[in-house]
Structure formats: C-alpha cells, structure tokens
Amino acid sequence: MIITQALPSRLEKIPEFMAFFLERTRNSTFREEDIFDIRISLEEALVNAIKHGNKFNAALSVDISIEIVADRVTITVKDQGKGFDYTTIPDPTKDANLVKLSGRGVFLIKSLMDKVEFFDCGRTIKMVKFLK
C-alpha cells in the first residue's frame, strides 16, 4: 500500500491526516508498539516540516509518502523550506539540555525508527520501521 499526500502547512491538519493513516493500519498485523513509534515519528516529522521547514507558510505544502509492505513501513516527509544542518543537532539528553523546551523531535525519530536519512539539505527525511 502506498499513501501520498500534499499537506497544507497548518498544524491543525495533522490530526486529520494521522486519523487517515491510522485507519489504514487498523486491520494490519502491526504491533501496537510499532504503531505508537511510527505515529510519534511521523507526527514529529510533520511538525518539523510545517514549523521549521515551511515556517507555517500556508502557500507551501508538506509532501508525505508512506509505503507499507509486509515487513516494513517507509515514510518520506518533504518540506519546501531552506533546509537545515541535520549533522549538528544538539543532543537533547545531555544534562544541560534536559530542561530545554524544544529539540527532541529528530532525536525521538532516530530512537524510535530503525533507519533515518536526510536528503536535499535536510528538506527531506526518510525513515523506515521494520515490523516484527
């Protein structure tokens, strides 16, 4: 199954899309734990794309592609912003960063998904979850 969607850069559009996505996982053999991990990762990627990538510009969209096959889910989220240096993201688990209110999104994605790659100067994130 492949799901593609161009999402307007508005945070309130995320629940609608997530409900659509979760509905498609309902009758699958996915474990609840895997769905939880995929859900957080997808939502964090969408928030980052809307907030930091497209900077809430409603004229810009976030392009989502989700491929679900027997043993894995592959998600690609692409924004139309200026990109960012994904090699220098501070570690949010360091003591000095623990009380910071932001900066955990990419860390959560990397922790919860099995494979994470950035492309196009950070405008595109591709993440894979292997299903057990």
Binding site: F36, E43, V99, L101, S102, R104, L108
Partner: peptide
C-alpha cells in the same frame, strides 16, 4: 495513551 515532544515541553515548563 499518547504524548509527543510538545507534550513533554509543556510538562517541563510546568515543572520549572
């Protein structure tokens, strides 16, 4: 049933 990074931030703010 679910919390994301914005929820974590809200709780950190409350703690502070």
């Amino acid at each position: 049933p679910y919390i994301d990074s914005s929820g974590l931030a809200t709780l950190i703010e409350m703690l502070q």
